[in-house]
């Protein structure tokens, strides 16, 4: 038999029909203001961490909405919790809290997934 292991069938497409909403639902439960985000990018423009790294707060919000848990858990480590994003948000979203909630939920999911 030929070795076909180099073929990795996958898709870059966002598959809305099968997405992991465990993070999103948790954040919305405790910080419902996140619903009103319009992806204006004000947060990203003012972000202290984003000025030094390729960290993008606006994308954190988008990934949260699309259930990209794996990407988020790595990216979120770059936030320094200065809170400037929250100050500039035109929709008055507590972005700092959104980030905190994501971190908290990721930690919870890790515990759930690891064997006791």
């Amino acid at each position: 038999m030929n070795d076909l292991s180099f073929l990795k069938p996958a898709s870059r497409q966002i598959d809305f029909d099968n997405f992991d909403d465990r993070l999103l639902l948790y954040v919305l439960q405790y910080e419902p203001s996140f619903f009103t985000c319009i992806s204006c990018g004000g947060c990203t423009a003012t972000c202290s961490a984003g000025n030094l790294t390729n960290f993008n707060v606006r994308k954190i919000g988008l990934w949260l909405r699309r259930g990209e848990t794996e990407k988020l858990s790595e990216e979120i480590q770059k936030c320094m919790f200065c809170g400037k994003c929250t100050l500039v948000c035109p929709r008055d979203i507590n972005i700092r809290n959104v980030i905190l909630l994501i971190k908290k939920r990721i930690a919870m999911l890790k515990n759930e997934n690891s064997p006791a």
């Binding site: 180099f6 073929l7 990795k8 069938p9 996958a10 898709s11």
Partner: peptide
């Protein structure tokens, strides 16, 4: 290009 064939087969699978 052999390295790109995953892209090809992914489209067919879709």
């Amino acid at each position: 290009i052999k390295n790109n064939r995953s892209y090809s087969i992914s489209a067919s699978r879709k």
